[in-house]
């Protein structure tokens, strides 16, 4: 019997549906599509989960599946920009704590939405705190060095966006 066979479906739902929904909502920015993506992820798990041999990878697998479903629905290709494996120098503007505190979750998502798509997913997963760096890399199918560089660049963009919104 594989590790997977010992996993209880309801326990998986209990453990992961909230973080998966948050990730989905961060990507889709509407309740309907976020619920749809979350459900589709578990539908696919119900159909294909038997092929998972390593129970420790289920969390990454679920996030990967959800992200791929999102990309597929949006008909977007997940391109990996070349020469991104190095953490390059990024100057992020300082953001007063009050600016971040004044945000509500919707405003935070709207700011994230303006971040370049390549940086948005890793940045969202970073802030959701559900995955390690390696798991983020696995979920997005990119090298861990790329995760780091996208986080740096994504945060720099995010801060610039927040400052711009605060000034306007």
């Amino acid at each position: 019997m594989s590790d997977h066979a010992k996993l209880d479906f309801s326990e998986l739902v209990e453990s992961y549906y909230t973080p998966l929904y948050r990730f989905a909502y961060s990507l889709a920015k509407n309740e309907h599509e976020a619920s749809d993506l979350t459900q589709q992820t578990f539908v696919i798990y119900a159909q294909k989960g038997d092929s998972l041999r390593d129970a420790s990878k289920i969390k990454s697998w679920l996030f990967t599946t959800l992200y791929r479903e999102f990309l597929r629905l949006r008909r977007r290709a997940a391109h990996v920009t070349p020469q991104e494996n190095e953490i390059l120098e990024v100057e992020a503007p300082p953001v007063e704590p009050g600016i971040a505190r004044a945000l509500d979750s919707q405003s935070a998502l709207e700011a994230l939405e303006q971040v370049d798509e390549a940086y948005r997913a890793p940045l969202t997963l970073f802030y959701l705190k559900d995955l390690s760096y390696k798991e983020i890399a696995a979920s997005l199918d990119i090298p861990i060095g790329t995760v780091m560089s996208r986080l740096s660049r994504g945060k720099a963009q995010l801060k610039t966006i927040l400052l711009s919104r605060a000034a306007s």
Binding site: R22, S35, S105, A108, L128
Partner: peptide, 22 residues
Amino acid sequence: IFAGKLHDIQPPADLKDKLLAL
């Protein structure tokens, strides 16, 4: 602070039941 904003997002109340039905 920013992470806290994302954690304010809550799934719809009946989503879990829908998922468990799968």
